[in-house]
Amino acid sequence: MSSQPPTGPPSGPVPRPSGPAPGPPPPSGSGAPRGGRRRKRTLIGAGAAAVVLALVVVLVVSLGGDGDDDGGGSAVSPAPTDTKAAEAAAHAVATRVALAPPDWGSGFTQHKPYEVDPAPESLVRENCEFASRPSRIGTLASLQRNVTETASGIAGTSEVKVFADEATAKQYLADARDNIHRCPDQFRGKERWNGVREASPPQLPGFDELVSEEGRQVVSANGATVNDLYVIATGRDGRNILSAYVVGKADLDAQIQKYATDSLQKMHQRLGQQPEAAAGR
């Protein structure tokens, strides 16, 4: 999530390690996970049936992983049988729970891109490069909304992920922790972050797990030296993952921390509301 540093309104939240991160789409034509084997085209007689069966097995195995060994993130569970209905229900939850500018407070406006849907996952490679990848198998919805506070230059992102089951959500959060601890100093292009660490999470009731990440961006995307603090507060409630990312000038530390905590709490409150009650707010 990094943003160009807030020297005035930031040029945009760009997700930091283990938080939401707009990333490149999968390579065109790659409908199956990487590592799938090429199919031999012709066989004769009874041998063809055996090869077809073998290919089915290979396809099933290849679909069991996300195809990227960097930084963890193996798939845990398949999507439900009625995938379309499950995805529609999950997307409705994500759309209802993710925050709009007024939810952050007065002075916040939409930031482009305002909504990233689907939002990919973050990844910290073994060489400490911050990157992103498509969502893992078992992700039913992954939606992100970006905002900016004009006066302070603080940028915020709320993200909601809904998984097929609790086991996949737990694995996602475990992988997020691995990302945090992989490298204290990270990079992406010209961008540099220092002091990446797992911090004490906000004390919020109702979550099954809470994780907090903090760090400083010291070089922006255009190569300029900056001193920006970012905080990512993430909570798991069952199979749902909620994240609030906030970045701003380092001297706005207390304000950044408060926005992250308050935004995560607000999303959790929305998650617990019945859709009818939320619509009638």
Rank of each mutant, 00 (worst) to 15 (best):
T7F: 07
G12M: 06
P17G: 08
P22A: 14
G23P: 01
G23I: 11
P26I: 13
S28R: 09
P33G: 06
R37T: 15
T42C: 05
G47V: 15
G47C: 02
A50E: 10
L53S: 15
A54N: 02
V58I: 08
L59Y: 09
L63G: 14
G67S: 08
G72N: 05
T81R: 11
T83W: 04
K84C: 03
K84W: 02
A88M: 00
A94R: 04
T95L: 06
T95H: 01
L99C: 07
G105I: 08
G107L: 08
T109H: 04
P113R: 05
E115D: 11
A119G: 09
E121A: 11
S122L: 04
L123Q: 08
L123H: 05
V124R: 04
V124M: 07
N127R: 06
S132N: 10
T139D: 11
L143K: 11
Q144N: 07
Q144A: 13
T150Q: 11
I154E: 01
T157V: 13
F163H: 14
D165H: 03
E166R: 10
A167Y: 05
A169T: 06
A174W: 00
D175H: 01
R177S: 09
R177E: 11
D178S: 15
P184N: 08
R192N: 04
W193P: 06
V196E: 09
R197K: 15
E198S: 10
Q203F: 01
E209C: 01
L210Q: 13
L210H: 08
S212L: 04
E214T: 15
G215W: 01
G215M: 04
R216L: 08
Q217G: 12
A221Y: 00
N222G: 09
G223P: 05
V231D: 03
G235L: 03
D237K: 13
G238C: 10
L242N: 09
G248P: 03
D251V: 05
D253Y: 04
A254V: 13
Q255N: 11
D262T: 12
S263L: 03
Q265W: 03
Q265V: 15
R270Q: 11
L271P: 07
G272V: 03
E276N: 07
